[in-house]
Design a protein around this nucleic acid. Structure first.
Length: 299
DNA sequence: TTCCAGGCTTAAC
DNA sequence: GTTAAGCATGGA
């Protein structure tokens, strides 16, 4: 089964391979699978699990096909299309970013190397918050392990051709879950409590992506997120960047970013947040993209 | 063993 | 308002 559901127009500078390289950075990624030609991911549409495949087709368009499940109705297809546009940031014009990068000695080589890479987003707020929380103060490999455990334990899955595909757990699933249960997956107590708190807020309708986006500014959304215990500046900026699609978000506290800048500038120590802000002045409005491209120099 | 990893909270100044 | 210490956990 391989039904073409619809196609999406791609920006001229979109480069699938650059995006795939990023998405393929960890063998522990459990929420989608990549190969040379495309991406396969499980979704739940109309309460039915479906397996969706994305490939680039003739004429530089993104083909969205159904590998498993029933063909969804129009509304669901529109929702899926929207998700994909946000996931791969397909509706953003990167020309201004590439223009400023040309004049930037740090960004120029990275843009040249990864030209066409777009910020791969995490459109689902719960998933984005959890991913940030799990990634706090641990190395990335361990963060992936924690995500994989959480997903395998509480997410839904779908088998096809010997492969298991997972969907990130929905927040409602955690209604009766105690922190101790999450600690057994080796989340710290603090991470466990924060994940449960976020799940309760979202499941209870007190926190949503729509509400955050409806606030007067991304900074207001960041403030709202900071009210949650266990969510600090890095986490809220990270969510701004990867879920709320705010290209001007700049996680200055990010140790990966600090290490890349240290490495690329030949500094003998990590730059301070103030130094990073100074460095980022020419990136105004595109700090998140600069960060995303800089991260590519890490691996 | 020590140090670090895509931090956060609390307490002290 | 800014800085320092304490907190957990796995991996090198």
């Amino acid at each position: 089964m391989n039904d073409l559901l619809f196609e999406l127009p791609l920006p001229e500078d979109f480069n699938m391979n650059a995006c795939l390289e990023y998405m393929n950075r960890s063998p522990l990624e459990c929420l989608f699978r990549t190969d040379e030609a495309g991406i396969t991911r499980m979704f739940r549409l109309e309460e039915e699990p479906v397996l969706i495949r994305l490939t680039v087709s003739e004429g530089h368009r993104l083909s969205v096909s159904l590998l498993h499940g029933t063909v969804p109705g129009t509304d669901s297809l529109e929702g899926l299309a929207r998700y994909i546009v946000e996931w791969l940031d397909l509706d953003r014009d990167l020309a201004p970013f590439y223009k400023l990068a040309e004049a930037d000695s740090l960004l120029r080589p990275l843009v040249s190397l990864h030209y066409g890479l777009r910020i791969v987003g995490i459109p689902d707020l719960f998933e984005a918050l959890c991913w940030a929380i799990l990634g706090q103060q641990v190395n990335l490999a361990f963060a992936y392990t924690l995500k994989q455990r959480l997903t395998a334990e509480y997410g839904e899955s779908l088998e096809r051709e010997g492969q298991t595909y997972y969907q990130f757990p929905r927040p409602e699933v955690f209604a009766e879950v105690q922190a101790e249960e999450l600690c057994r997956l080796q989340l710290t107590r603090s991470k466990a409590c924060t994940v449960l708190e976020v799940a309760a807020l979202i499941a209870g309708g007190e926190l949503s992506r729509e509400d955050l986006l409806a606030l007067p500014s991304p900074a207001a959304a960041e403030q709202r997120l900071l009210e949650i215990r266990g969510v600090g500046p890095w986490t809220s900026q990270y969510v701004r960047m990867r879920c709320l699609r705010d290209a001007s978000s700049f996680p200055v506290g990010d140790v990966g970013l600090q290490n890349v800048v240290k490495f690329l500038t030949g500094l003998d120590r990590k730059p301070t947040p103030a130094e990073l802000l100074e460095l980022a002045r020419p990136w105004q409005g595109w700090e998140a993209y600069a960060t995303f491209y800089l991260w590519r120099a890490l691996y």
